[in-house]
């Protein structure tokens, strides 16, 4: 670490190798949004309460606002930009739209990342398990119901598409 606190960030982001020298000592959220311009990951509260900055770090869902950027060196990060695209939505994204689970959209990226994490661990969750899975993600618009049903619908579709498959395969 030099006097400008420059560090080398070498990691994989959304399947692509990233290597860049940037100012260290910041949050993973800042690295993703300010350095990589991956602004799909939202900052809601910045204190680990709302879940809108949820990303996956080596397959685990983490809050990018509470994760030091150095923690991601050598890891694989998955953000919302690595999950489907506007023309090829992931089943979770398509189901949220279909059910009406998106209003202002601020919570949506984090909600999708939490849902993917849940479905990875539990491909066939009950309504109660879905509620528990997204209880760390705040939504002020929808009242949650349409999000919960959207995730349930996506789970059923993913199960039907590949009963033995995992959510990770559906992302890649």
């Amino acid at each position: 670490m030099d006097e400008n606190n420059l560090i080398k960030m070498e990691l994989t982001v959304n399947g692509e190798a990233v290597s860049m020298i940037v100012k260290g000592g910041r949050r993973l959220l800042d690295f993703l949004r300010d350095d990589l311009h991956l602004t799909g990951t939202k900052e809601g509260c910045g204190e680990g309460e709302c879940g809108s900055c949820t990303v996956h770090l080596d397959g685990q869902s983490v809050l990018a606002c509470l994760t030091p950027m150095e923690r991601a060196i050598g890891c694989s990060v998955l953000t919302i930009e690595g999950v489907g695209s506007p023309t090829n939505l992931h089943p979770v994204q398509a189901a949220l739209l279909d059910e009406g689970g998106v209003q202002c959209g601020m919570c949506t990226p984090g909600m999708v990342m939490s849902a993917l994490d849940l479905l990875e661990r539990n491909p066939d969750p009950t309504i109660e398990e879905i509620i528990e899975g997204i209880s760390g993600n705040l939504c002020r618009c929808t009242g949650y119901k349409k999000i919960i049903y959207g995730i349930q619908q996506a789970a059923q579709e993913l199960q039907a598409a590949s009963p033995a498959g995992t959510v990770k395969e559906s992302v890649e």
């Binding site: 528990e132 209880s135 993600n137 919960i148």
Partner: peptide, 15 residues
Amino acid sequence: KLSTYLIPTAADVPM
């Protein structure tokens, strides 16, 4: 702050 001003989570509300 969302840590001191609590709003409902999915676990706090009925359908």
